[in-house]
Nucleic acid binder design. Structure first.
Lengths: 136, 136
DNA sequence: CAGCATCCCGGCTGATACTG
DNA sequence: CAGTATCAGCCGGGATGCTG
């Protein structure tokens, strides 16, 4: 049920800080975590609300993602024992610091994604040309 | 997070910026890219040098990772037609900006990883207690 | 030295069906 | 509403062997 990564214990002696970076990417680098964090950054939300706002996520993956974030102390989960059930999710203070840290990456993405797409296109063209030469 | 940048592409209407963040995580969120970027941030390096410094990476994955980064315009590849072959890898200006953006994440990791480990441990203890109750 | 090609497995992930 | 359980497929990524 839990695909949580035990991960490698051994680190890299040359890149101690990067090794740690790997650890956080193991936590927020997956397909959905950052989106959940961003949405909860706006305000506390309910399960269905999140599901509705995150395009393409399945119930299962939303559950798994939220559990992981909760386990890591990034998201808090509040259950109201009513009928029908109601559960609120919110960022913890720790989660908020993570959101801030991630925001520089988000800004980078907004700024440079076009350049990446360009670079890709050029690279693919060159690759196609090279292929054409080889098959002559 | 931020209400800015409507972002022309048809993305997730509720999280335009986060959708873009997903895109960059697709590029650097994998197992090795950030480490490669960090090492090339120090200076230009050769293939074998990188392989030696990144603990646990296979030739295959180093190649794949470098190709991906090259394709995205983050890493430059310089081939010297000598015998034996020599190839230098370096960060492009774009790659350097990415490294800077990622550094806030790295700092966050260094600062808060202990908290996460604590939170995990606590969560696991609570989970174990809950399980014990259920099986009574 | 710096790669590419191939095989193959483990796990993440999505789809579906069922509950309190 | 907010999950849990189960099954099936895909692909990341490791191991190995071969080239220029």
């Amino acid at each position: 049920m839990e695909p949580s990564t035990p991960s490698s214990g051994a680190c890299n002696e040359h890149t101690p800080s990067m090794c740690r970076a790997r650890e956080i990417l193991d936590r927020v680098g997956d397909k959905w975590s950052l989106q959940v964090i961003a949405l909860l950054g706006e305000r506390t939300k309910r399960f269905t609300e999140l599901k509705r706002e995150i395009d393409g996520i399945s119930q299962r993956m939303l559950t798994v993602t939220l559990r992981g974030l909760e386990r890591d102390g990034i998201v808090s989960r509040t259950v109201y024992p009513v009928m029908p059930p109601r559960v609120d999710y919110a960022l913890t203070p720790l989660g908020r610091t993570l959101m801030d840290a991630a925001s520089s990456l988000v800004r980078w993405a907004e700024t440079h994604l076009d350049e990446i797409d360009e670079a890709r296109a050029e690279y693919d063209v060159r690759a196609a040309e090279t292929d054409a030469l080889k098959s002559m």
